[in-house]
């Protein structure tokens, strides 16, 4: 498995990277955990590969006014090791621990994974549930796209050809919110047959905030808007079960050799129920 030939350069600056991103036949690489396998199978045959993994502007996890900001080229490993994230968004570590494997997490980046937009990857569910905001940058400028408007299909996003994903803003969780990620893995790849991220805040016994992101189930990871109907209700067993059913209502589920559509829908209901239950349990 040998890639087709290409040229390789390391971007010297973000400006340099943005210039390259706008060039035809160019692919950017950071951790390479999504791109290199594509190159090996010659499913991607760029003429130039520009490395942006080392750029300091794309690294790191910082506290900002509205939330926690993660540089797109931050590795999964660094997400796991971040005390700040453990405090502000523990769901990131909970989810990341199940992404790929140890070696892939050491090298793979959150931005690379999100931009690759594999419909069975875990992180999309989380950024959807957290209502994250993604910064897309090009030579033309910078714009913010909510995660809930970012995923457009399998391996398709709202990114324009000349744009780079540079950072991910995770807004602070609502007061007293609990979070949880529940997934069922495909045994060979470890990707999610279904993965569900949930955020639930409870006050005085009633739900004050509820958000659910679902990956693996459909051809695009999605935000299950129906979860908002939990607001004002008591998060008991029956209500959460009903919410889980509502979350996948009408979804056209993926079907492949690993799981039928029917089974995926069933797993999704189970995962939503469990994620909501755990998140509600952690709330307060």
């Amino acid at each position: 498995m040998i890639p087709a030939a290409f040229e390789y350069t390391r971007a010297r600056s973000l400006a340099d990277a943005l210039k390259a991103a706008g060039t035809r036949g160019t692919k950017v690489i950071a951790g390479g955990q999504s791109l290199v396998p594509l190159l090996r199978f010659r499913l991607a045959q760029p003429s130039v590969v520009v490395d942006i993994g080392h750029l300091p502007q794309l690294q790191g996890i910082k506290r900002a006014k509205q939330g926690t900001v993660i540089g797109a080229a931050t590795t999964y490993r660094d997400l796991l090791d971040s005390k700040l994230l453990h405090n502000t968004h523990p769901i990131i570590a909970e989810t990341t621990a199940g992404i790929g494997d140890r070696q892939v997490r050491n090298r793979g980046t959150i931005g690379g994974g999100l931009a690759h937009a594999d419909p069975a990857s875990d992180m999309p569910a989380v950024v959807l549930a957290l209502d994250a905001v993604l910064t897309l940058q090009s030579r033309r400028g910078k714009r913010s796209v909510p995660a809930r408007k970012f995923f457009k299909g399998p391996f398709a996003t709202a990114m324009k050809k000349d744009e780079l994903l540079t950072e991910i803003l995770l807004p602070f969780l609502p007061q007293g919110a609990g979070t949880a990620y529940e997934s069922f893995e495909q045994a060979a790849s470890g990707y999610a047959l279904v993965g569900v991220a949930a955020v639930v805040a409870v006050s005085g016994g009633a739900v004050t905030h509820a958000a659910v992101g679902i990956t693996g189930l459909a051809d695009t990871p999605f935000f299950a808007a129906s979860a908002a109907k939990l607001i004002g209700r008591t998060p008991n067993k029956e209500i959460l079960r009903a919410a889980a059913a509502a979350a996948v209502e009408g979804v056209s589920a993926n079907e492949d050799i690993h799981a039928s559509a029917e089974y995926r829908l069933h797993l999704a209901r189970v995962a939503v129920r469990k994620a909501l239950t755990t998140a509600a349990g952690r709330a307060g």
Partner: peptide, 28 residues
């Protein structure tokens, strides 16, 4: 529990990589 080679009706091997053929791992 998990290994199976699957062909579709056209004779294409659908378990053509380790992404789809589930060799047991330590955690399983």
């Amino acid at each position: 529990l998990q290994e199976i080679a699957v062909y579709d009706e056209d004779g294409q091997l659908l378990t053509g990589t380790m992404m789809d053929y589930a060799v047991p791992r330590a955690s399983q």
